[in-house]
Design a protein around this nucleic acid. Structure first.
Lengths: 343, 343
DNA sequence: GCTGGCACTCGTAAGTCAAGAGTGCCAGGG
DNA sequence: CCCTGGCACTCTTGACTTACGAGTGCCAGC
């Protein structure tokens, strides 16, 4: 293809150098500075020619005549795909992760700590999704009578998550009937995946006395609701103060970013659209949401064992240290997975 | 006192006008503009004299010679205390509150919606504390055997909140013993306030068979821990994008503010230090936390009935519309209180 | 005690200028 | 054919100057 013909190894090296320098200095990088800081073995004039080609192909861009070059989204994309490797963490960083996460108390705490850790490690905005329940199984369902017609339904999942729902029953429910329902419910549903539960329980009301059937049906439908609703995931955010580390594009970009980050739906879509198992990077305009057009998202799935139960990642400026960020995100995800598997 | 002698009604009117104009225009206000926009009945020269007095007393301040005046923290304080009334909401705003909160599903949803609502209404950063459990009572304690030595403890409070804890028991716990413990626990603790529970349950282990006592003690201490820990409150934040509406002092002030707002501890102290029942306003340096020295906090307690169970409020620039903000905060708090009382 | 008038201060905007960075292009050499 | 040194050109940036105007403080007079 055409690009292959025009972009020889040296041009790619130039692009790599531009990205690295620009990420470091935050300033457009010129040909002269480039040859000084990287031993490319050619003169600045040659580099200028290469840059002209790279610009023609859309990998770099010139803010104005007589300024240095800045990578475009397409340039970052090529850099991420072919010009760099994920950078493994230093042992100090690795130790920080274990230190920080080993002291987590429960699921909420794991998520909260993960978000703080990611934000600190990458110095960017961290996003962590609660473990998904779509593939989760029911560990236990508890029913507690609060008043004669009111029942508290508590759903406990195998990821250690607990959800409660208040059920207003159409008729009085006796303690005996409640105990009966509880045990039958658990007998059938415990250990099952969420998706299976409704079919497994659909004929349950029939086995109850006529006057109790309405109440049983109400309880069941509340349970089903809870199961479905929990697939709408929660997302936790941290490190928004890191947005202020870029006084450049202020306050143009920060406002829409903050707005976007407050929308759970947007956050979920940010993380949600990845399919493959590796670290996903979405750069600038590759992001569906307009407010995030000048940011990149680095995300990855995590889970106990080999199943992905949720995603986590960071949001930062397109001008970010991709190798380092990808390394940090991946490392944190792995360790969180281990923690989840152990608990 | 001296102030009373020097600050006659007209000077106070001038201060009020300065605050109002400055909040509106965000620019230092001069004597001429003041007499044009408010019918003070005197000339600009007179106003200038008054301003000189107000400045001597520290109520207003001049950024530089030949600039208009800006209220100081002390000036805002006087304004809030004596020069204005809390502004009641418009019917449209009132309707927005009811519309928004009436559709809340559960406690989490109430809090989430409240935060969004407050942020929208005041166009500032909203902070809502989860209802306090210190005065809460235990509604039910549930124990679920997960493995022979592992028990899930679920605590349900009268505010509808649910907390779970995993308990690793030193010995195997049978289903029968667990049922026994469950019923005794609820018999003694249900309906009681958190603080009472430990004393009520302290001799419980003695009534169990010798080989079970260690397990019972473990479960109980986990329960007590959960009770205590829940008095450390959670706080939810929203509307941080509103911080970007002040391109003036950027990005000087926004960074420390964002940092402060990410610290749960700081947030809690922000809300927590108020005692009296009315709306509390803390202006600029009245704030203990340094990063918030250029912001004001407007907060108020809310609760079902007449007991305050938690607080909510907003954080904004000292240059804010105090009457409007106070009105909005108060109205939201009242309505949330009603919702909580009803559910 | 209020008012009009006036001189003074000082921040802001606009305009000018020089310096420097960076480029594109070209002609020559390997 | 590709690389290189050289050179003219562009355009941003910062410093400096200037003019303007908003706003003040003060004073004499009513």
């Amino acid at each position: 293809m055409r690009e292959e013909r025009r972009l020889d190894d040296r041009k790619l090296a130039v692009l790599r150098a531009i990205v690295q320098d620009y990420v470091g200095t935050e300033e457009p990088v010129g040909s002269k500075a480039l040859v000084e800081r990287h031993n490319l073995g050619v003169s600045s004039a040659t580099v200028r020619n290469d840059m002209a080609i790279l610009e023609e192909e859309g990998y770099i861009h010139q803010p104005h005549t007589s300024a240095g070059r800045v990578p475009t989204d397409k340039g970052y994309r090529l850099f991420v795909d072919r010009l760099t490797e994920v950078k493994p963490l230093s042992t100090a960083e690795r130790r920080a992760i274990t230190n920080f996460l080993d002291h987590a108390l429960d699921l909420d705490d794991v998520v909260a700590r993960t978000v703080r850790l990611l934000a600190q490690l990458t110095r960017q905005v961290a996003v962590v999704q609660y473990p998904s329940l779509t593939r989760s199984t029911v560990r236990h369902v508890e029913l507690v009578a609060l008043t004669p017609t009111r029942v508290m339904l508590v759903l406990i999942t195998d990821t250690g998550r607990v959800e409660q729902r208040l059920v207003d029953c159409p008729s009085q429910v006796g303690e005996a009937m409640l105990a009966d329902l509880r045990s039958r419910l658990n007998a059938r549903a415990a250990g099952r995946r969420f998706a299976e539960v409704p079919t497994l329980l659909q004929d349950l009301p029939e086995s109850f006395a006529h006057q109790d059937r309405a109440a049983v049906t109400t309880v069941l439908s509340t349970l089903f609701e809870a199961l479905v609703e929990q697939t709408e995931e929660r997302v936790v955010l941290g490190g928004t103060a890191n947005l202020t580390r870029f006084p450049h594009d202020f306050p143009l970009t920060i406002a829409p970013v903050l707005e976007a980050l407050e929308e759970q739906v947007v956050l979920l879509r940010l993380l949600g659209e990845t399919g493959d198992p590796g670290v996903m990077v979405r750069i600038g305009h590759e992001n569906a949401y307009e407010g995030l057009n000048s940011t990149s998202v680095v995300s990855v799935g995590y889970g106990s064992g080999d199943e992905t139960v949720a995603k986590l990642g960071v949001v930062g400026p397109t001008r970010m240290d991709y190798p380092g960020t990808m390394g940090a995100v991946r490392a944190v995800a792995r360790y969180v997975g281990q923690i989840l598997a152990a608990s």
